[in-house]
Simulated scan of single mutants.
Amino acid sequence: MRFRPQYVLTAVLSLTLAACGGGMVKRVSEPAAGIQQLTVANDGSWDVELRLRNYSSMPMRFDDVSLRIKVGDEAAGTLNAAPGLSIGPESADVIKVRLQPASPARIVVADALAGGRSLFYELEGTVKATPEEKKQRSFEVKARNTLNQAPGLPGVLR
């Protein structure tokens, strides 16, 4: 068998090209938001722990959150925050937002707590986030879920 340098060169070039193509693809995915915990304060206001999820393959800085919240069939108000929080790729973090809810929404939450029932909620609005090394973008967010009373913690839904 005779040595053929062109085969060696072709093999080396193929391996080099294959090694170059294995880099991580950076993609920006829409973030999500949900309520992790809702605590009713003594003055009737709510402390809402809002979980922000970054589904992108790169870090994103969450600059502004404006989400209308509805409990049961009642509008409660708008969760507004400017967290300036950086969340790593495919990770989540929690921010706390205080809300003075509308009276009908207070009644819905008080009723769910008194009866030990789950509470249906909806979030709808925008989250402004800045992907790493890119421009800020505004993302539409819609979420629907339920909260349940936290055992042993009066006035707390999770």
Rank of each mutant, 00 (worst) to 15 (best):
21 G>V: 04
21 G>W: 05
22 G>E: 05
23 G>R: 14
25 V>W: 02
25 V>Q: 14
26 K>E: 14
26 K>Y: 09
27 R>Y: 14
29 S>Q: 15
31 P>I: 07
33 A>Q: 02
33 A>T: 01
34 G>W: 10
37 Q>H: 06
38 L>C: 10
40 V>R: 14
40 V>N: 07
41 A>V: 06
45 S>T: 11
46 W>E: 05
47 D>C: 01
47 D>H: 12
52 L>A: 04
53 R>M: 15
54 N>W: 12
55 Y>R: 14
55 Y>P: 09
56 S>D: 02
61 R>H: 04
63 D>R: 06
64 D>E: 12
65 V>E: 03
65 V>F: 09
66 S>N: 10
68 R>K: 14
73 D>I: 10
75 A>Y: 14
75 A>L: 13
77 G>C: 02
80 N>D: 12
83 P>H: 04
85 L>E: 02
87 I>N: 01
92 A>M: 12
92 A>K: 11
93 D>L: 09
93 D>R: 11
94 V>N: 07
94 V>H: 01
94 V>K: 00
96 K>F: 00
98 R>I: 15
99 L>Y: 00
100 Q>R: 15
101 P>M: 05
104 P>Q: 03
104 P>E: 02
104 P>S: 04
104 P>D: 03
105 A>M: 06
105 A>L: 04
105 A>Y: 12
106 R>N: 12
106 R>E: 07
106 R>S: 15
107 I>R: 07
108 V>N: 02
108 V>K: 10
109 V>L: 11
111 D>Q: 13
112 A>H: 04
